[in-house]
Deep mutational scan, measured.
Amino acid sequence: EVTIKANLIFANGSTQTAEFKGTFEKATSEAYAYADTLKKDNGEYTVDVADKGYTLNIKFAG
């Protein structure tokens, strides 16, 4: 089991951190699915992958 950390960075400057656990593939998939649910209210997003994929910096356009 691994932990994927998602740093969520919103257009208004606020930030939030979420963690997803499971296999690497499952946790990564859940992180992207979570970002997709936030897209409606926060706009499109870009992802900067860090720490060999264990950290995702997800920035929303607003």
Rank of each mutant, 00 (worst) to 15 (best):
residue 55 T to E: 11
residue 28 T to I: 15
residue 7 N to P: 01
residue 14 S to N: 13
residue 38 L to K: 08
residue 27 A to V: 06
residue 42 N to L: 06
residue 17 T to C: 04
residue 27 A to K: 01
residue 59 K to Y: 07
residue 14 S to R: 14
residue 1 E to N: 13
residue 49 V to T: 10
residue 22 G to H: 02
residue 15 T to I: 08
residue 29 S to V: 07
residue 49 V to F: 13
residue 1 E to Y: 06
residue 56 L to Y: 10
residue 30 E to D: 14
residue 56 L to W: 06
residue 62 G to S: 06
residue 14 S to T: 05
residue 56 L to V: 07
residue 33 A to G: 07
residue 21 K to N: 11
residue 55 T to C: 03
residue 10 F to C: 03
residue 41 D to Q: 15
residue 25 E to T: 10
residue 2 V to Q: 13
residue 4 I to H: 00
residue 56 L to E: 00
residue 25 E to I: 10
residue 8 L to H: 02
residue 60 F to K: 00
residue 43 G to F: 03
residue 9 I to H: 12
residue 27 A to F: 00
residue 38 L to M: 15
residue 27 A to T: 03
residue 7 N to E: 13
residue 55 T to N: 07
residue 31 A to C: 03
residue 13 G to R: 02
residue 28 T to S: 12
residue 45 Y to T: 02
residue 46 T to Q: 06
residue 31 A to Y: 01
residue 7 N to M: 11
residue 34 Y to F: 08
residue 32 Y to W: 11
residue 51 D to P: 02
residue 6 A to T: 15
residue 35 A to P: 01
residue 49 V to C: 04
residue 13 G to F: 14
residue 12 N to R: 05
residue 38 L to P: 00
residue 48 D to T: 10
residue 42 N to Y: 10
residue 18 A to C: 03
residue 15 T to P: 05
residue 55 T to R: 07
residue 9 I to W: 12
residue 46 T to C: 04
residue 56 L to D: 00
residue 56 L to I: 07
residue 1 E to W: 08
residue 39 K to N: 05
residue 7 N to S: 06
residue 17 T to H: 07
residue 3 T to P: 05
residue 30 E to N: 14
residue 49 V to D: 06
residue 7 N to D: 05
residue 30 E to Q: 10
residue 53 G to R: 02
residue 31 A to R: 00
residue 5 K to V: 11
residue 1 E to M: 15
residue 37 T to R: 05
residue 19 E to H: 13
residue 52 K to L: 11
residue 53 G to K: 04
residue 47 V to Y: 11
residue 21 K to A: 06
residue 2 V to E: 11
residue 19 E to L: 12
residue 27 A to S: 05
residue 14 S to W: 13
residue 10 F to T: 03
residue 21 K to E: 09
residue 18 A to L: 15
residue 24 F to R: 06
residue 27 A to C: 03
residue 12 N to Q: 08
residue 28 T to D: 01
residue 50 A to Q: 05
residue 27 A to G: 05
residue 44 E to F: 10
residue 5 K to S: 15
residue 20 F to S: 01
residue 44 E to G: 09
residue 44 E to W: 11
residue 2 V to G: 06
residue 11 A to Q: 13
residue 28 T to W: 12
residue 5 K to I: 10
residue 11 A to P: 09
residue 35 A to T: 09
residue 27 A to N: 01
residue 60 F to I: 01
residue 49 V to W: 05
residue 8 L to S: 02
residue 5 K to Q: 09
residue 18 A to Y: 07
residue 9 I to Q: 11
residue 50 A to R: 14
residue 62 G to W: 05
residue 58 I to N: 00
residue 56 L to F: 04
residue 11 A to I: 06
residue 15 T to H: 11
residue 17 T to E: 10
residue 15 T to G: 07
residue 20 F to G: 00
residue 62 G to K: 05
residue 23 T to R: 13
residue 33 A to K: 12
residue 45 Y to H: 02
residue 10 F to G: 02
residue 27 A to D: 01
residue 48 D to E: 09
residue 28 T to E: 08
residue 23 T to C: 03
residue 7 N to I: 04
residue 10 F to R: 03
residue 4 I to G: 00
residue 35 A to H: 01
residue 21 K to T: 12
residue 36 D to S: 10
residue 20 F to H: 02
residue 24 F to H: 11
residue 20 F to C: 02
residue 12 N to C: 03
